[in-house]
Amino acid sequence: MKVLDLQCQHGHVFEGWFGSEDDFQSQKQRGLVQCPLCADIHIDKRLSAPRLNLGAREPAAAPVASSVSHAASDTPVEASTLPPALQAAWLQLARKVVANTEDVGPRFADEARRMHHGEIQERAIRGQATAQEALQLLDEGIAVMPLPLPAAAKETLQ
């Protein structure tokens, strides 16, 4: 089994497991290798070194990243600058949202209105709405929140 460090064109870093280099190249050519955060198929291998167990030495302490200071600034944090642990946490959260909501697709605005007016039973929904529809819902007092969900959150990873 080959474990490869991969990166999409948006800078998201992730790991892929393949039977061989040929297996990786074949899957990449067929568009089967996708970023789990943004579904980008433009994937590159990153340089990686195999872990060699050369003795029973204590592992060196990893330097502590100061990623919190980025979040505290006025500049928005790009997903590609987030540490892999935060990217993984975001993907886990997105999967929970998908697992606990019903996808109503483009009917989102209509379903939200019907629930708000008591025409149908309230339930957790997600779907697509235009920016104009979202603003109209907010003007009507219906709470909505844009939440871009990566394609990988909607399916089981193999």
Rank of each mutant, 00 (worst) to 15 (best):
H42A: 13
D40F: 01
P83H: 10
P59L: 06
M115P: 09
Q132M: 12
S26R: 13
R46S: 13
R95Y: 00
Q29N: 15
E111V: 13
S73T: 09
G19N: 11
A124M: 12
C8M: 01
R51T: 08
L32F: 08
P36M: 03
R126L: 04
A79P: 15
G127N: 11
Q92A: 15
T75W: 07
L86P: 01
L82P: 01
G141V: 00
Q132T: 11
A124V: 04
W90M: 14
R57Q: 15
Q128V: 01
N100V: 00
M145C: 06
H10N: 13
A88T: 08
M145W: 08
Q34E: 12
H10C: 03
S67N: 13
A60S: 11
V144Y: 06
D139H: 06
H12Y: 07
L54Y: 08
T101E: 03
P146N: 05
G31S: 06
E78M: 05
P50I: 08
I125C: 04
L135D: 15
L47H: 14
G141S: 04
D44H: 12
E133Q: 15
A94G: 02
M1K: 05
A112M: 07
C35K: 05
A72M: 14
Q87D: 10
Q27H: 12
S69C: 03
R126V: 00
R113M: 07
A153I: 00
A152K: 00
D110L: 04
L137V: 01
R113A: 03
V33Y: 14
A124W: 09
P150M: 07
